[in-house]
Simulated scan of single mutants.
Amino acid sequence: MTGEDANDLTHVDESGDVQMVDVGAKPDTARRAVARGTIHLSESTVEAIRDNQVKKGDVLATARIGAVQAVKHTWETIPMCHQIPITNIDTEFEVDSAAVTLSVAVETTGKTGCEMEALEGVTTGLNVVWDMVKAAEKDSEGQYPGTKISDVEVVSKEKKTVE
């Protein structure tokens, strides 16, 4: 562990049972987290995305909807996440010759952060891209030799006192 002792874990009690962290006494703060990740695709698939020629429809619009839905439902899929009031979600796509990078920024005002929500938005958004283009990405054996999702990370997180 990076500088943490097992006794410093916040999601287990003294007997080792998993627990949700009690944030009730914490003050409300304005919080923002940004996560990013990339899906690597063939150049022809990226060209089809750019030209809106994917048979399933508008890939980036559908991925944006998936990302937003994932952010709003993070507390349902990550067992120890609190349900938080999402105040804003921004999604941004960068389309390169052989990859699509998705950044998701999430904002909330509350007692706990929103980095898990940003990560859920990125991973789901990229999974939606994969789902939308999988027919074009399959090789002759039905495999995805060049398709991969990588570099998923939290790129920033901010916390400001609410006045």
Rank of each mutant, 00 (worst) to 15 (best):
T74R: 03
H40C: 07
R31S: 06
M116I: 09
D139P: 10
M116Q: 07
T108A: 11
E47V: 05
N7S: 14
A61R: 10
V23A: 06
V95S: 05
I149V: 15
I39C: 01
E14V: 15
K157A: 07
V21E: 05
V46M: 00
I86F: 05
A136Y: 02
G121T: 01
D13S: 07
E14F: 06
S15R: 08
V100G: 01
T45H: 00
K55I: 06
G125I: 12
E141A: 15
C81W: 04
K111A: 05
T123M: 10
N127T: 14
D96R: 13
V129T: 05
D139N: 14
S97F: 08
L60T: 06
V129Q: 06
T38D: 06
M132C: 02
T10W: 04
E92N: 14
D5N: 15
K159H: 04
G16D: 06
R64Y: 10
K160T: 12
T112S: 12
D51L: 12
K157Q: 11
G16I: 09
T74W: 01
I49Y: 00
P27N: 09
V106H: 09
E158T: 13
V155N: 08
V106N: 07
A135S: 10
E76K: 14
F93S: 03
V106D: 04
N88M: 11
D13P: 11
S44K: 14
K26E: 10
D151W: 04
V34K: 11
E92F: 06
E14Y: 05
V54D: 05
V128Q: 01
K157T: 05
E14T: 13
G146L: 10
V155R: 12
M80K: 02
V54P: 01
K159D: 01
I39F: 12
Q143K: 15
E158F: 12
H40P: 04
G37F: 08
R31T: 03
K111E: 07
R36F: 03
T87N: 07
N52V: 14
V154N: 07
D5A: 09
I84H: 00
E14D: 07
D5Q: 12
V154G: 04
L126K: 03
D8E: 13
K134Y: 02
T147V: 06
V162T: 14
E137G: 03
S150A: 12
T38K: 10
G121F: 03
I49F: 01
R32E: 08
A61H: 13
T38A: 04
G66F: 02
T29F: 00
G37I: 03
M80E: 04
D8I: 04
D22L: 05
L41T: 00
D151F: 05
H73G: 10
G66R: 00
Q143Y: 12
T91F: 02
A35K: 01
P79A: 01
Q83R: 15
V155S: 14
P79E: 00
V100W: 09
E47C: 06
T101S: 12
D8H: 11
D96W: 12
H82A: 08
G125E: 00
D17I: 08
T124E: 04
T123A: 09
V162H: 04
A6D: 09
R36T: 15
E141F: 09
G110L: 00
E163R: 09
V46I: 03
G113A: 08
M116H: 02
D58Y: 11
T108Y: 02
P145V: 12
S103D: 10
G66D: 01
D51R: 15
C114S: 13
T123H: 11
T161D: 14
